[in-house]
Design a protein around this nucleic acid. Structure first.
Lengths: 152, 152
DNA sequence: TGAATAACCATTGACGCCCATAAAAACCCA
DNA sequence: TGGGTTTTTATGGGCGTCAATGGTTATTCA
C-alpha cells in the first residue's frame, strides 16, 4: 500500500528542479506513470501531490456522474484542468511549474509533507505555522477518529 | 488508461492549425483513428474533445436509450451530427474548423484543458473565468466525491 | 485550373537525459 | 560497538533531442 510519511526539506535549483524524497519515490514505484501528479490546494497555500493511480480512480468516480452535468463539469475543471503531470528525471527530481510554486510561495526550498495516501508540498515556514495551528485546533476540538477495520 | 491532465496554451496559426499537446497525443496513441474527435459543447462556449474510442462508448450509451425517443434524438443530433474528426498532421497538429472556433470564441490562441477521460478546447481568458466560477461553486456546494476504492 | 487541403521542411527554445560531486545513510566486519 | 567502507541521495551543470511554430511545396477535388 502507498503511504507517504514524515516531512522532508529539499532545495529548488535554478532550473526549478526539486528532488522528491527517496521514500516517496519508493512509495510510487511501479505505477504506470513514473512521476507525480500535482495541483493547487483549494483551501491552502500548498501543492497537493499523489501518484497517477489516484487520478485514475478520481476519473472513474467522476465518470459515474451524469454526463455534461454541472457538478461533473465543476469537478473536472477544478481538479483535472489544474493537475500537472511531473515526471522524474534520472535522479528522481521533478520540475516545479511556476504556477504551482507561486501558489505555495515556494522559491528556494520546498517541504514535502506526508499525509498518508497523498502528500503536500509547502514553503517550509508556511507549513510550520500551519502545523501549529492545526495542532491547536485538533486539541481544542478534541478531534478523534474511528479506526477502519482491515476488512471493512 | 486514457487520462487527460493539465491545461496547455497553444497558438493557432493563420491557417487555423493548432498543436495538440504532446501529452494528449501520447494518451491517444494506439487508437484506430490518428487524431481527435471534437464537437461544440451545448452548455459552454467550448469545444469538447476526445479520442474516437470515447465516441464509440458514447454511442453504446445512447443506444441504450429508447429508440426514437426525444432524448435519444437530441443527443444524436447535438453530438454525433456535430462531431468532427480532426486528424493529426505530421507534427501533431489539427485544423480547427471555423464553426467550432467561433463557438468557443477562439482566434489566436487556444487552451487545451484536461478533464480526465476527455478534454476541452477554450479561449484562454474565457476558461480562466469559467474555472474560477467552477471553483467557487464547488466550494460553495461542498462538492465532494467519494473516491472509488481500487478493488471496487 | 484555381482553391483548399495535405505533406514536407526548417528554426528555436524548452525539456529530458547524462555525467560529476559531495554528503549522508546504510552496511559490514573486526 | 565502533570504525571504516560502500551505497544511496541530494544537488549542480552541460548537451542533445523533441515539441511547438512558421513557412513552402505538392496534391486533391470541385
Amino acid at each position: 500500500m502507498v503511504l507517504f510519511l514524515s516531512t522532508f526539506i529539499n532545495k529548488v535549483d535554478r532550473k526549478g528542479r526539486v528532488s522528491v524524497p527517496a521514500p516517496f519515490r519508493a512509495a510510487l514505484a511501479g505505477q504506470v506513470f513514473n512521476g507525480i501528479v500535482a495541483f493547487r490546494s483549494y483551501r491552502l497555500p500548498a501543492i497537493e501531490g499523489s501518484g497517477i493511480d489516484r487520478m485514475e480512480r478520481l476519473s472513474d468516480s467522476i465518470d459515474e456522474l451524469e454526463l455534461f452535468s454541472e457538478a461533473r463539469d465543476d469537478l473536472a475543471s477544478t481538479i483535472f484542468a489544474d493537475a500537472h503531470q511531473l515526471s522524474f528525471d534520472g535522479e528522481g527530481r521533478i520540475i516545479l511549474p511556476p504556477l504551482l510554486a507561486e501558489h505555495a510561495g515556494i522559491t528556494e526550498i520546498a517541504a514535502f509533507v506526508g499525509r498518508g495516501a497523498t502528500f503536500q508540498i509547502w514553503e517550509p515556514d508556511a507549513f510550520t505555522t500551519h502545523q501549529q495551528e492545526a495542532r491547536a485546533r485538533a486539541r481544542a476540538n478534541g478531534a478523534t477518529l474511528r479506526l477502519r477495520r482491515p476488512d471493512e
